[in-house]
Design a protein around this nucleic acid. Sequence first.
DNA 1: TAAATTCATCGCAATACTACGATAAAGCCA
DNA 2: TGGCTTTATCGTAGTATTGCGATGAATTTA
Lengths: 117, 117
Amino acid sequence: MNLETRTMGVTKTQHFTGEQNRLAALAKALGHPARIAILQHLLKQQTCICGDLVSELPLAQATVSQHLKELKAVGLIKGTVEGTSVCYCIDKQNWEEARDMFLQLFSSPVSCQDNCC
Amino acid sequence: MNLETRTMGVTKTQHFTGEQNRLAALAKALGHPARIAILQHLLKQQTCICGDLVSELPLAQATVSQHLKELKAVGLIKGTVEGTSVCYCIDKQNWEEARDMFLQLFSSPVSCQDNCC
DNA sequence: TAAATTCATCGCAATACTACGATAAAGCCA
DNA sequence: TGGCTTTATCGTAGTATTGCGATGAATTTA
C-alpha cells in the first residue's frame, strides 16, 4: 500500500528532468489539431492575425479562446491588445527553443532495424 | 441551440485535415515526460531494450505498460515478444515520418518580431 | 451616454488521461 | 506439473481536457 500522498490522475513531473517536462509540455500544447491549425495560420500570415482565427476554425469563440490561452501558457504565442481586438503571433524566441528541442530529440540515429527485435 | 449530435469532451477531428490530426496525435503521444523518457532511453540504447524500462522509470509497471501502449498506438515504437519478456524499440519508419512532420512545422520562418503586434 | 464589437472567463457536461493495485496470460525452469 | 517471471489488461479513483452557451470586461462608435 502506498502511504505517501496519493495524487491520482496527476502527472508525476517531479520525477523527470526539467528538459523532459518542458519538451512534454510543448508537445502537449501541439497535441490538438485546432492548435496545430492556429499555429500554421499564424506562420502563414506575414502580419500578425487577430481574432479572425475564430472564423477560420470550426469551433466556437470560447473554445478558440481557450486553445489560444493554452498556446500562450507554454509561450508558443503571444497576444497584444489592439483596440477592441487582440493580435496574436508566434513568440519567436520560444518557438525556436521548441524547434531546437524537437530537433534534438529527433536527431539521434535510430539503430533499430526491421529484424532488430 | 445546437441540435446536431452533441459529443461533449471529444476533439472534433472531422473538421481538420489528416495532416493536422496526424501531427497532433504524434505530439500528443510526446506530451508526457514519461513517454519522452521512454523514447530517449530507446534512442540511447544500441540494442532494443525490453521491460527493464520499468526499473528505469519512477512509475508502476502497469503505468509504464500503458505509456508503452500509447506510443505503440501512434506507431512510434514497436514491441516483439522474446520469451517471457517483450523487446521494445523505435519504429524507424514512423519515427522518421514524425521527424519530418515536426521539421516541416518548424521550418517556416517566423516573421513576428518584438514590435510586431 | 448608449449600443455594438471583441474577446476572456465562468460554469457545466461529457470524455480523456494518469496512476496503480489486482489479476490474468504466456512462457520459463526446476 | 507447479511455481516463477514478465507483461498486459481490468477496474477504480482522481484530475485534466474539450467544447460551448452565457456572461462580463474593455473599447469603439453612434
